[in-house]
């Protein structure tokens, strides 16, 4: 491979920047910093001004509605989509999508995408010299059930290199796209796997400066979800920001 890495910072440089930012962070910053310089691509793409508080109205109060005309149940199984068995560790990820009050987000769209077991995406701009799996696209969709539950059967993704710095590797992750009941609850995030040694090194994961908040991005291994001689199970629940129903409720609604 061509070595074009002279200009890139080292992992040591990036890790030192992460530590310095974390040391200076306030406790309780539970969403990622938009300006997180160790993630170099954020430098020119973060808004510099504080977001403007607004009261949601009209279209902001109503999420788009999806239904069975939109999503085929087969789209939730990423291991049967391409006419053969994909290579890798078969797994199930199951969880619930709830709003800030713990209410289930029912019948709503969940979309995922991920690398294959070798860390390679089906994407023309993925240049990682790892094999494409002809039997794996890494794309899935489902609708949550009446309890907000979702489940995908898939292959555990591999870690992959990227060009943020020299010898940079993303921890294994699955990208998730979520809708709530309000448009303002829209969320795209990434789910990680427990115990990944790359966590401390990854500026995207570490852009969430609060340690407890970062942990919310990590699925739990759940042996009760594993299936005998078939697959390993993970549980990952997702909490969206409060819906407007929350703010409209009277102060004493818990009484």
């Amino acid at each position: 491979m061509t070595e074009r890495t002279e200009a890139l910072p080292s992992q040591r440089d990036i890790s030192a920047e992460i530590v310095a930012l974390h040391d200076a962070a306030e406790v309780g910053e539970t969403q990622p910093r938009l300006h997180f310089p160790p993630y170099r691509s954020s430098l020119l793409r973060h808004p510099t001004k504080n977001p403007r508080p607004a009261d949601p109205e009209g279209a902001e109060l109503v999420a788009p509605v999806f239904g069975h005309s939109d999503v085929d149940p087969l789209e939730a199984d990423l291991t049967v989509q391409s006419g053969g068995e994909p290579i890798g560790e078969r797994m199930l990820v199951r969880g619930r999508v709830v709003d800030g009050d713990g209410r289930p987000v029912r019948r709503q769209l969940v979309e995922i995408w991920q690398a294959n077991a070798a860390g390679r995406y089906v994407h023309q701009r993925d240049q990682h010299p790892a094999p494409v799996d002809p039997h794996f696209t890494g794309l899935g969709r489902c609708l949550t059930d009446d309890d907000g539950g979702y489940a995908f059967t898939t292959i555990k993704p591999g870690a992959y290199p990227w060009r943020n710095h020299r010898n940079a590797w993303r921890p294994a992750h699955i990208h998730f796209s979520l809708f709530g009941t309000d448009f303002t609850q829209r969320l795209i995030t990434q789910m990680y796997f427990p115990g990944d040694p790359l966590f401390a090194l990854d500026p995207i994961y570490q852009s969430v400066t609060d340690p407890a908040a970062r942990e919310r991005l990590v699925a739990g291994y759940d042996h009760d979800l594993s299936e005998h001689e078939w697959l390993l199970g993970y549980r990952w629940d997702i909490v969206l920001t409060g819906s407007h129903a929350t703010y409209l409720e009277p102060e004493d609604h818990d009484g």
Partner: peptide
């Protein structure tokens, strides 16, 4: 109110 799951970048491969 529960604390919301953090967002993460959409990345380059969507």
């Amino acid at each position: 109110e529960l604390i919301a799951t953090p967002g993460q970048t959409i990345g380059p491969f969507f």
